[in-house]
Amino acid sequence: MVLTNQTDFPQKESEFDLKAYLAQRKALVETALDDYLPVKAPETIYEAMRYSLLAGGKRLRPILCLASCELIGGTVEMAMPTACALEMVHTMSLIHDDLPAMDNDDYRRGKLTNHKVYGEDIAILAGDGLLVYAFEAIATYTENVPAPRVLAAIARLARAFGAEGVVGGQVVDLQSEGRSDISEETLHFIHTHKTGALLEACVVCGAMLGGATEAQLQHLSRYAQNIGLAFQIIDDILDITKTQEELGKTAGKDLQAQKATYPSIWGLEESYHQAQQLVRDAKAELAEFGTPAIPLIAIADFITTRSN
Rank of each mutant, 00 (worst) to 15 (best):
A55H: 07
V89Y: 08
S271Q: 01
A137G: 06
N114L: 09
L18Y: 14
P148I: 11
P42L: 09
R156L: 06
L71A: 14
Q274F: 11
G168N: 12
E70H: 07
A197E: 08
Q225C: 12
Q277R: 13
D235H: 11
M88S: 03
K12P: 02
Y223P: 12
L255N: 09
D128E: 06
P10K: 08
A83R: 06
E136H: 13
I237L: 15
L66V: 15
Q276G: 04
A300S: 02
M102F: 12
T186M: 00
T113Q: 07
V279S: 11
V172A: 01
S183M: 09
V171H: 03
D97E: 13
V203G: 04
E246F: 02
L94R: 04
L278Q: 04
E285T: 00
A158T: 14
T82K: 03
E288L: 05
Q225Y: 05
W266V: 00
A67E: 09
F231G: 10
E270R: 12
T186F: 00
F231K: 07
R149S: 01
G165I: 03
Q216P: 09
Y51G: 05
G127W: 05
N114W: 04
I124P: 05
G56E: 01
A123F: 08
L33H: 03
G73H: 00
D301G: 02
T113C: 15
S183D: 07
L18P: 12
A212F: 00
K19H: 02
A163V: 15
S68I: 07
V150G: 00
A215D: 14
Q24D: 15
Q277D: 14
K26R: 15
S264H: 09
Q175H: 10
Q256F: 01
P292C: 05
Q256A: 12
T91V: 13
I182G: 11
L71Y: 05
L86S: 13
R25W: 06
A137I: 14
L199M: 10
V172L: 15
L94Q: 08
G211D: 12
K283L: 01
I124E: 12
L64C: 08
L125W: 02
G168R: 06
A123C: 08
G162T: 05
T140N: 08
R149H: 10
K259F: 08
T7R: 04
Q11L: 11
I227M: 03
Y118F: 15
L247W: 03
E269D: 13
G129A: 15
K259Y: 06
T213L: 07
A79E: 10
S307V: 06
T213Y: 02
A300W: 10
L22T: 02
L86W: 14
A32D: 09
W266T: 02
T113L: 06
T305D: 09
P100W: 04
Y133R: 13
F189Y: 14
D173R: 08
L54P: 01
F231E: 04
M88K: 09
V39P: 00
K194T: 10
C65V: 08
Q218K: 14
Q218L: 13
G290L: 06
H273V: 11
R108N: 12
E30I: 13
L217Y: 02
V171C: 11
R50G: 00
I234D: 03
P81N: 11
F161L: 13
A101H: 01
L286Y: 05
A79S: 14
T243N: 08
E143W: 03
K194E: 05
V279N: 09
E87Y: 10
G252F: 01
L33K: 01
L112Q: 14
L217S: 10
E43T: 07
M92Q: 13
L229P: 02
G169H: 09
G267V: 10
Q218N: 14
